[in-house]
């Protein structure tokens, strides 16, 4: 059966590919997950100078109400900036910021097929033997992101570059503001964490880096040998303290109940891999600050997701899952990082 989006997508792509004949879209199917963007895979087929052509592509479309409100152009440009660098990313093809073609803004990218992204499969065969190697690769690539020059990548053209000494305050103000706007009940644990963060700010970073914003197990494509083939979900990308990504990647909710960061590596090995690749040092006190900041950010996202469901903007079950499955775990993560658990 034809998905209703297929002919509309074909019409859009035909406008972008005037050389293509008999262009059609088929096999469009939604990929599960993606509470902040609707993600679909599809096949594009066309003829070019009489020859049949085919390409597997990804459509990322804004939903009616999102778990995270972000600029799709920033995500698109972040992928483009890291193309052909040591940071593996899929090729970006088209960005559409208007809603005429498919009701909401979207972008289209190549599909990197043949690999897994979901963390669930990591804890089953044939992936059980690859964790240490995958973990080292994960934090090496994060080190490459931290090392990259934002100006040379062109990211300063699309992202505001504030003063390094304000990095911590910008993030804390933003996510506290999200909690202020979206909480529907008192949150004594996360509010205690916020008070501690304000009373104990970290030193400024040596320099501003590109911050992926959601660098965690589950947001990269991996294989059975521990290889990483694509860093995904750049929608919260910004410029900031490189320790922010490292702290977020250490958020205990991403440990999946294992005593390893990201469920993959001992903490000191992950730090060593990141330091070796980035050429930076992870100050323990500053890293702890950013770990706790990551817990506050996580809680803000889970709370926001529930609020979007309550307000009726998005009634999909994926909006309920984060507050039900992760809100209490995030509180426990805060207690753990603060040495209270």
């Amino acid at each position: 059966m034809t998905h209703p989006l297929e002919p509309r997508l074909a019409a859009y792509l035909a406008g972008k590919m005037p050389h293509a004949e008999d262009l059609a879209v088929d096999q469009l199917s939604r990929i599960s997950g993606g509470a902040s963007r609707e993600t679909y895979r599809f096949r594009l087929i066309w003829r070019e100078r009489g020859e049949p052509r085919e390409r597997r592509l990804i459509l990322r479309r804004d939903p009616p109400a999102s778990l995270i409100e972000t600029e799709r152009r920033i995500e698109f440009e972040a992928y483009r900036a890291f193309r052909n660098t040591p940071v593996p990313v899929p090729e970006m093809l088209y960005l559409e910021e208007e809603s005429d073609a498919l009701d909401h803004p979207f972008f289209i990218a190549e599909e990197i097929s043949g690999y897994q992204a979901g963390p669930g499969t990591l804890w089953t065969e044939p992936y059980l033997g690859c964790h240490a190697r995958l973990g080292r690769r994960k934090w090496e690539i994060l080190g490459e992101i931290s090392k990259a020059d934002p100006q040379a990548l062109g990211m300063t053209a699309v992202l505001p570059a504030g003063a390094p000494e304000d990095c911590w305050r910008r993030e804390l103000d933003h996510w506290e503001g999200v909690l202020d706007a979206d909480q529907t009940e008192p949150l004594p644990i996360v509010r205690a964490a916020i008070r501690w963060l304000r009373a104990n700010p970290p030193p400024p970073p040596a320099r501003l880096s590109v911050v992926h914003g959601d660098y965690r197990t589950g947001n990269f494509l991996y294989d059975t040998e521990g290889g990483v083939h694509g860093i995904l979900d750049w929608e919260m990308c910004h410029l900031g303290d490189p320790l922010e990504d490292l702290g977020w990647s250490f958020n205990p909710v991403w440990s999946f109940g294992r005593e390893l960061v990201g469920g993959l590596l001992p903490r000191d090995e992950a730090i060593a891999a990141w330091e070796a690749a980035s050429g930076l040092k992870a100050d323990p006190g500053a890293l702890r600050w950013w770990e706790l900041m990551g817990c506050v950010k996580g809680q803000a996202i889970w709370i926001s997701s529930g609020k979007a469901w309550i307000d009726g903007g998005n009634r999909e079950p994926i909006m309920v899952y984060p507050p039900w499955a992760l809100q209490n775990a995030q509180d426990r993560a805060i207690l753990k990082v603060m040495g209270r658990l």
Partner: peptide, 19 residues
Amino acid sequence: IWDELRASTERRLVIGSPV
């Protein structure tokens, strides 16, 4: 108060919680 906050997370704990 910290003891009670910790206890509050135990009351809400579900099987499979990552923390």
